[in-house]
Amino acid sequence: MEHFAIWIAAFLTLGIVSFLYKDNAWYKLCEAIFVGISAGYWFVVLFWDNLHGKFWMGKGEDPMLYVGAILGILMLMRLIPKIGWISRWPLAFIVGATAGFYLINYFSSDVMSQVGSTVMPFFSTGYGSGVNASLYDIIGNIVVAVGTFTGLVYFYFSKEHKGAFGATAKVGIFFLMVTFGASFGYTVMSRMSLLIGRVDFLFGDFLGMIVQ
């Protein structure tokens, strides 16, 4: 049974890789399988985990869960054109709750804490620890503070980027370009490791040419 499953996996892997040659029927077949199977997979997982696991099992302890279920049913009203407008209610609930939740969370965890981590003494490893940083750390601290400030200046579009402000923004672009380059390098590496994993599967598990 496992051999058959490995053959299926290899067939699907090679089908997707065949797209490198051109769009073809084999690739389309794999794509169609992927869409159907993964939609079914996530539907079933959500059904058992959320509807059964969280709502059905927990409704006795927390009657408020009925509110979620009612809102969910209201969302299905979209299928009936005459009363489709009712489906806006659960949508409004989700949008309102997400907005309220994110407003506070993003402000405290992403704005305040990031600013707090940036505004640090240059010559020490933390507040009140004296001048104890190495040259490596000092340069790093300065680069982080200057880079964050100039990067933010670049993102400020309400003022024309001219004069001293424009020069600061240009320094910001420099930092952002390094960031994009680093992110690109990281992305390529992660994709490469996935590719290595697939090649390892084809030559190892499937063809048996790589002995583990």
Binding site: V95, G96, T98, A99, G100, Y102, L103, Y106, F107, D110, V111, Q114, V115, S117, T118, I139, G140, V143, V144, A145, V146, G147, T148, F149, T150, G151, L152, Y154, F155, G172, F175, L176, V178, T179, F180, A182, S183
Partner: peptide, 29 residues
């Protein structure tokens, strides 16, 4: 590079995004 230049750029982007999220949340509410 990852711990200094990249961190600075990521922070600027993150703070920018977060301020945008806060503003958009207020507009929605």
């Amino acid at each position: 590079i990852m711990n200094s230049f990249n961190l600075a750029g990521q922070r600027a982007i993150l703070i920018g995004i977060s301020l945008g999220v806060v503003a958009m949340s207020l507009r929605l509410i």
